[in-house]
Design a protein around this nucleic acid. Sequence first.
DNA 1: ATGGTTGGCGTCCAA
Length: 257
Amino acid sequence: MKIISWNVNSIRIRKHQLLELIKKENPDFVCLQEIKSSNDAFPISDFEKLNYFSYINGMPSYNGVGILSKYKVDSTYSHVFCNKNDSRHIEVKYKGLRIHSVYVPAGGDIPDASVNKKFEHKLNFLGEMKKFFSKNDAHILAGDLNIAPYENDVWSHKQLKNVVSHTEIERAKLLDILESGNFIDTLKKLIPSSENLFTWWSYRSPDFRLNNRGRRLDHIWINKKSSLKLIKAKIIKEYRELQKPSDHVPVVLELSF
DNA sequence: ATGGTTGGCGTCCAA
């Protein structure tokens, strides 16, 4: 089985790149984030032509998640975090397999919840995620979690330790969710640390290749207690080099169950 | 220390 997670940053702009990715990789499931589309505007028919079902929790302009599946799933569910209907979660169930696509709030610029409402929201969201996933027994949790948890998940730990996405409190909260939900960080486990681990490079660098100032914000976790067996993982960095790229690249996990 | 870019039912906001 193959699963892909990708923050496309607008399905409208990235649709053709996604169709090519699916043709090339032939995944069973694709977890999408930041589709920036309402449910009605999502191009379901384009994916139907490749024999995929689209399960979408969208909204206009911002956020929005979805899961594309080769199979008609048994049920879907979208959890409301922090009392906001902001389309940051969708779960599908298929033959006892529970797969989640999650988009954690970015958190704004200032890493202080007392002055930055967005950072406060991010920390609250992580708190609710811990409760939800310690009860849910998810098999696969994939998405843009907007946190780089380990020191070598960023281009410079020293320069980013006070930057939102890599602060001590965010890293601790993310690892707490990982542990309390009995998850394995599969990309960390399967990809040697000598290789590039980054999944995101800011649009604000004129040429991201020059200094490779990336971060590992996108993750695929599987539950330790499940019978899923890891095979291999990869980060498709080449997608950052395409014309009109997303700032995130697709991450891929192969497993058996 | 600052500003850089992208996308959206856009003319500022979020990332």
